Simulated assay, not measured.
Amino acid sequence: MPTVQQIEAKLFEFAPPDLKMDWDNVGLLVGEPDRLVEKVLVALDITWEVAEEASRIGAQLIVAHHPLINCKWLPVQTVRSDTPQGALLIALLKGDISAICMHTNLDAASGGVNDALAAALRVNDPGPLTREGIGRVGTLSEPVPLRRFVAEVSRCLHCNGLRYADGGRSVHRVAVGGGACGDFVDQAVAAGCDTFVTSDLSYHDFLDARPKGINLIDAGHFPTEQVVCPVIIDTLKQAFPELEIVLSASHGEVIQYYV
């Protein structure tokens, strides 16, 4: 059986740590490097439900996308049982469950989040959207009306719902950005895209879509990044066929829509 450290090394071969953003925190974040692993749970986030699921199925390791400590949205200063983040970390440590997180390095990696998103939406010949390798730009096999493409995005990504703004163009040259890539709308415009699929867009992003001449589709953070979990599983299965690898059944889209 491989160790936690050997699994981390294999994941770093696929998504090298030097691809991560400066503020990010990736790799083995919780646990013992020399711990032998028989079962791995793969999830987009490490939540209470995911930690309980790992304990219930006897997984020694969770591999996730979003970091659970020392990231810009949850900087760790203390590990206390009376805080949500501290209690989760303590539960993982008490349960002897290690955690490896592959975040912006997996966004930028060839075959990672954004290539998986482009493949799910049938975007052909995807190339990088930004200098850092975040996002992808490619083309559909043929132009399609926006409403038809919106329906296809929702179906392919299993969205509970999505938000979009009509930029006044049919869909052919498409940019994708898994997760919160609203900062890259102008890059998508500069790349000649008529459509950008991402998540966490602001009111002003949608307001400016038509003046900029680009269709914006906010398909949700979870749906646009969950596409990478099967990629992680396939990568680990090929490297460690003796491992039992399970996709989390407890973690799903947390945002509900009422229309």
Rank of each mutant, 00 (worst) to 15 (best):
G58M: 02
K72F: 15
E225W: 07
V231W: 03
R35S: 10
E38C: 13
A51E: 03
D125G: 07
A51I: 03
L11F: 12
P17I: 15
A165N: 11
L88R: 10
D18N: 13
T224E: 09
L106D: 08
L106R: 03
A165R: 13
F222R: 01
T195H: 11
I232M: 10
V228N: 02
P75M: 05
Q77R: 15
V197T: 07
A119H: 12
P128T: 08
S81N: 05
I134P: 03
V123M: 00
V63A: 12
Q77T: 12
V63P: 04
A99R: 00
C156P: 02
G220V: 06
C156V: 08
M102N: 11
A64C: 12
A249C: 04
F196H: 09
A118I: 03
V123H: 04
R210F: 04
F196V: 08
V174T: 06
L117F: 08
A43L: 04
A219L: 13
G252Q: 07
V42E: 10
S248I: 03
G168L: 01
T139P: 00
Q256H: 14
G177I: 01
E52F: 11
W48H: 13
L68A: 06
G133A: 12
M21N: 01
N160V: 05
P211I: 08
A118F: 01
D45A: 10
P241C: 14
V174F: 03
F184K: 10
Q226W: 14
D34H: 12
N114W: 12
S81F: 14
E52T: 03
T139M: 00
D234L: 06
A43M: 00
V228T: 08
K39I: 11
I134L: 12
G138H: 08
P67T: 05
A219H: 09
H204T: 02
I46S: 09
V259W: 06
V42P: 01
R148A: 09
I62H: 05
F206I: 08
A116L: 11
C101Y: 15
D18Q: 15
A175V: 13
C181S: 05
K72G: 04
P17F: 12
V26H: 09
E8N: 15
L162Q: 00
L201W: 04
D115G: 04
H66G: 06
G112F: 11
T224K: 02
A109T: 07
A108G: 05
G161P: 02
I255R: 06
L146C: 06
F184D: 00
V37D: 09
F149L: 01
F149P: 00
F184V: 09
T130S: 15
N70G: 01
T83L: 12
D200K: 01
I214S: 10
R131N: 13
T83R: 10
S141A: 15
G161W: 03
G220Y: 11
W73T: 14
T3L: 07
A108D: 05
I7L: 08
V176N: 11
H65C: 13
L243E: 08
L93Q: 14
A191K: 09
N124Y: 07
D183C: 04
E152K: 00
Q256E: 10
P84M: 10
I233M: 14
C229R: 11
A109H: 09
D82C: 01
D194V: 07
P33A: 15
A209K: 14
I90A: 11
P223D: 14
M1K: 02
G177T: 02
E8T: 15
L68N: 05
A120D: 09
D200G: 07
G179R: 08
Q256V: 11
Y258A: 07
S170I: 02
Q6F: 12
I46Q: 07
A43I: 08
